[in-house]
Write a protein that binds this DNA or RNA. Structure first.
Lengths: 257, 257
DNA sequence: CGCGGATAGATTGTCGACAATATGACATCT
DNA sequence: AGATGTCATATTGTCGACAATCTATCCGCG
């Protein structure tokens, strides 16, 4: 790992590389949004042609987007049979959280070792913004802040492959949180206080305590999630034909132009 | 996860789903092989057109294959700049093994809980075949058996997302093992005895001991790997033009037909 | 009346051509 | 001479058409 001049500059100015976005990224974003918010129901079959004409792009970027979402686990891709929105079964929740517990332990350990003061203040900032969102009763915003906080922990760990694994979980967790917050309006949980405490424990370099905290935090989140979670939204049966002719257009946020 | 009749049958007969292979899978296999065995050097720029005409396919499957390899971490993909074979820096080894330690602990724990007797005998079989390979001084075969053993542990865990994470590591580990075995001819290490012992500990449902064993096993493997590992094969500089006109053809195992 | 095989339709996989973009060399200006 | 702006070239991103494959329906048969 040779450190170049541009690397040094980038670090000194705390600049982050600009993401080169192509069409498939844009398509993936819209599809992810539709799946996570529930406009696309579990079990629904996503056809390349449908999406491509709804979004006014060719099938290639749609295809690439499907592959991305497949890696994130939001859709299941089977040869010659296209993409199917995966469900939120109790087993899925269990899988995601058992894996997350393993990954996030490593992330916290590394983050403590590698966090700069800027990292810590960014974490503090995110944690501090959650109570407002809770007070405003914004389920979406609350879930977003929650996920972004943990995302920042992973980024602070500076472990590219670990972050890739987290990417496979992130969308699911957001989906879980969002559906729960929407179903259960008093979503203002203890989560944000635990976030704030975790940051301070990390700042104090108390690795043992931080590991125990993240374990308890995730276990609590998992427990709250499965409580009153009786296999909701498994719409595998009613994925019938859409009503309007281009029903997808509105579901994907409008394809004007 | 509703259990269907076909699921039950599949489990009863211990049948595994037949993989639908498409062209991009085939292309990915050849490229992976070329990278892992070192025919494609780190830093080398893989051009879609080059590969596609060397393999006599269009660019689409090559493109998909690049994406797959990108997810496995064997190549780095940057917008409009194609795929570049990644190196084997000491930091990569450290990343892979620190992550692997976390993942495989979970895998072993789950595998102990979920292993059937068929699973265990398959594990015993694989472990028992390693000494032969070592005696025959077959570096390639030895590395393959090693990876396949651990792969089977992950499969036994029956945790799809965990297995996906392992997929991102497997090729790297194979690459590490292979280069080490080739460089260091007395590769016959203690590995296979530890494999055999691990299986028996798992069979005895001694979770605590098994976790300690896998931890020690991986730590040992990591130590053996970085010993005498002075940033080898970082051919970023000498990735000059190829000799023959279609030099890729032979590197990819012959594109006759 | 249930079962197996052929067939039609729909959907994905692959292809080659074109458009968009990044890169590096070159010319120009200070 | 050094830096900056411009342009040609190579390479990837996107597109629409065609081929291969799967699914579901229908028909004949036991």
């Amino acid at each position: 790992m040779t450190s170049t001049v541009s690397d040094d500059f980038r670090e000194a100015a705390a600049l982050t590389a600009v993401p080169h976005r192509v069409l498939s990224d844009e398509v993936a974003d819209r599809l992810r949004e539709a799946i996570v918010t529930g406009r696309f129901k579990p079990g629904q079959h996503l056809r390349e042609a449908e999406i491509s004409q709804a979004l006014q792009v060719s099938r290639s970027p749609v295809r690439d987007a499907f592959a991305q979402l497949g890696h994130e686990g939001l859709v299941a891709i089977r040869s010659h049979r296209g993409a199917i929105v995966v469900g939120l079964t109790a087993q899925d929740v269990e899988e995601v959280y058992s894996l997350r517990a393993s990954l996030e332990s490593l992330a916290v350990r590394l983050a403590i070792a590698r966090a700069t003061s800027e990292d810590l203040s960014r974490l503090r900032d995110l944690a501090s913004r959650m109570p407002e969102a809770a007070a405003r009763l914004s389920p979406r915003e609350y879930a977003e802040l929650d996920v972004r906080f943990h995302d920042l922990v992973y980024q602070t760990a500076r472990h590219d492959r670990l972050y890739s694994c987290w990417t496979m979980l992130r969308s699911h967790i957001f989906r879980f949180l969002l559906t729960r917050n929407l179903v259960n309006p008093d979503f203002s949980e203890v989560g944000h206080r635990e976030h704030a405490e975790l940051v301070e424990t990390m700042a104090a370099h108390d690795t043992e305590r931080a590991l125990e905290m993240i374990r308890a935090h995730l276990e609590g989140a998992y427990a709250r999630l499965i409580k009153g979670y009786v296999e909701p939204l498994d719409h595998r049966a009613d994925a019938g034909p859409r009503g309007s002719e281009d029903g997808l257009t509105e579901e994907l946020g409008g394809g004007r132009e």
